[in-house]
Design a protein around this nucleic acid. Structure first.
Length: 518
RNA sequence: GGGUCGCUAGCUCAAUUAGGCAGAGCAACGGACUCUUAAUCCGUAGGUUCGGGGUUCGAUUCCCCGGCGGCCUACCA
């Protein structure tokens, strides 16, 4: 543990001296039991306990047997281990619920089976203790699948009381700060993270099956490129060099495409030094993939295929319930050109597209309602962007592709062949949120240099989120980036939709929290 | 960052309307019980009411300052 921050004093672990009242009393009792185990020659923290089955396996393989078959399995030896979640004392019989990472099973412990001494030790076990047990598989009179316990042993003494069994752990702060308790006490939380892992597994499989190579690129970068965002800064002492935590892996992945890895992807964290909300965590997970000889139309089709597959697998159909909404992933998804959407969906007057003055007038009218300040020097494109975000985005509930963006909003995207002011880019919006962003990659080094220079000028003018010029990336483009399309999908936000979670913090094990001061 | 709401036993929640001895369930502890499953029954114990200050005879309750958190909002994905 670091001693560098005297203000930060984590609570001492299970120290009965430090805790008062009921908690201190419970901690003392647990300490006493631990000492008693040692005095009887036992080990309250054993090193190894070889199991024969995980608990879920027993339910799968032996859950549906006939009475005759249970006569056999009751005589056999199954060895399981897990955490005691409930204890029901019944005189000379004890029932306990044992849970491991795969499921829950009941232990049926009889004094006649174990003898008085061993049975007394079982009664001393606490809810929360990790135990190992051997015995037969059978069903009780009430037909509960159970282990007929012939041997039972404490493996790890739990020193802290668990939350209440029926309501679980409700306090959101404790749930985020002590996720391990949340996972023990709230089975639904376990389910959310299983779904998240499943979703990522399916993405990997989808991309692997299509010949994409999974890679890892730098998280610490001398230039933070690939997205418009404020980076975290850090420093390398030996090289005497400032570094940025990456805001996106984009420029490195495209360098790999130049190098010949013409289908490539990375699933990993990005870091953006911005606000925290139900939609934003400072570190978040993206899958970013690049496919040479494809354009943004190909990626729209690919995205539909990948996400419907995931939704079908994880949700069991093409429909998701998210809060009050029913989201249908039935293909094809709605598609609107960015400019058209402002008029057709946003119900802005058509002249805002052609006339900056009209756009300003309409933007000011909307801004008056929301109190958003429209700077006097805001140009036409950014006025339209404001109108889009204000009038269109909130209306897009069902999966929708918005495509053909203005070039000025897309410094790394390629222009359409028939219109240099429009780039081949799309965003996937679901439930009013941007889930994916993709484009045909700008591979003309001269064009890219021009865009970088425009960004550099914006940076000079004070835009902290504008790109720095990445000269090596320009050189890579000069070697030749084949025609390529690339896409990034926000994993956390997708996980929110798939698990019906209202906050991004519900799908991230350890969301960033302010440190506590005692 | 701004606004707003919240913080009571290890956990889940009462009591705050209008200031008057802070309660219950689970968990814990002692006892009964050889098929229970939110086991049941009898009994015991457990509180810096987030911290500090103020008003008051008296503050969990009212006021101020601070801490942490939720939600809304802003920057963004």
């Amino acid at each position: 543990m670091s001693e560098s921050n005297p203000q930060y004093q984590p609570e001492p672990a299970a120290d009965p001296e430090a805790a008062e009242g009921k908690l201190g009393e419970i901690l003392e009792q647990r300490r006493r039991k631990l000492e008693q185990v040692r005095q009887e020659g036992g080990d309250p923290f054993v090193n190894r306990f070889p199991i024969s089955h995980r608990i879920g396996e027993i339910a799968d393989k032996y859950g549906e047997l006939s009475d005759e078959e249970y006569e056999e399995t009751k005589a056999q030896r199954f060895v399981v281990a897990g955490r005691v979640m409930a204890k029901r004392l019944q005189g000379k019989v004890v029932f306990m619920d044992l849970r491991d990472g795969t499921g829950r099973i009941q232990l049926f412990v009889r004094m006649n089976e174990l003898g008085e001494e061993a049975f007394a030790r079982v009664k001393e076990l606490d809810i929360g203790d990790i135990v190992g047990s051997a015995g037969g598989v059978f069903r009780t009179r009430t037909k509960e699948l159970s282990i007929w316990v012939r041997e039972i042993q404490l493996l790890t003494k739990s020193m802290y009381p668990l939350p209440e069994k029926w309501h679980g752990l409700q306090d959101v702060e404790t749930r985020y700060r002590q996720r391990y308790v949340d996972l023990i006490a709230n089975p639904d939380v376990m389910g959310i993270f299983h779904k998240r892992s499943r979703m990522i597994q399916l993405m990997r499989r989808f991309l692997d099956d299509r010949g994409f190579l999974e890679v890892e690129t730098p998280m610490m970068q001398p230039i933070a490129g690939g997205a418009a965002a404020k980076p975290f800064t850090t420093y390398h002492n030996t090289l005497d060099m400032p570094l940025y935590l990456r805001v996106a892996p984009e420029l490195y992945l495209k360098r790999l495409v130049v190098g010949g890895i013409d289908r490539v992807y990375e699933i990993n964290r990005n870091f953006r030094n911005e606000g925290i909300s139900t939609q934003h965590n400072p570190e978040f997970t993206m899958v970013e993939f690049y496919m040479a000889y494809a354009d943004y139309n190909d990626l729209m089709a690919l995205t539909e295929e990948m996400l419907t597959g995931i939704v079908e697998d994880v949700a069991g159909g093409r429909t998701l319930t998210y809060g009050e909404e029913e989201l249908s992933f039935e293909t094809p998804w709605a598609r609107f050109k960015w400019h058209d959407a402002i008029v057709e969906l946003g119900e802005c007057p058509a002249e805002v597209l052609r006339d900056a003055g009209a756009a300003r007038e309409h933007a000011l009218k909307l801004a008056a309602r929301t109190g958003y300040p429209i700077p006097a020097d805001m140009d036409h494109v950014h006025l339209l962007e404001f109108l889009f975000e204000e009038t269109v985005e909130p209306k897009l509930r069902q999966p929708t592709f918005i495509y053909d963006f203005p070039r000025a909003l897309s410094p790394l995207s390629k222009s359409r062949e028939d219109d240099p002011e429009i780039v081949e880019r799309f965003e996937l919006i679901i439930s009013g949120r941007e889930i994916a962003n993709a484009y045909t990659e700008l591979n003309d080094p001269d064009d890219q240099r021009g865009r970088f220079e425009a960004q550099a000028a914006a940076r000079e003018a004070g835009d902290e989120e504008a790109h720095e010029v990445d000269w090596d990336y320009l050189r890579a483009l000069e070697y030749g980036l084949p025609p390529t399309a690339g896409e990034g999908i926000g994993i956390d936000r997708l996980a929110m939709l798939l698990t019906d979670s209202p906050s991004i913090r519900d799908v991230i094990f350890f969301p960033l929290m302010r440190k506590t001061q005692d």
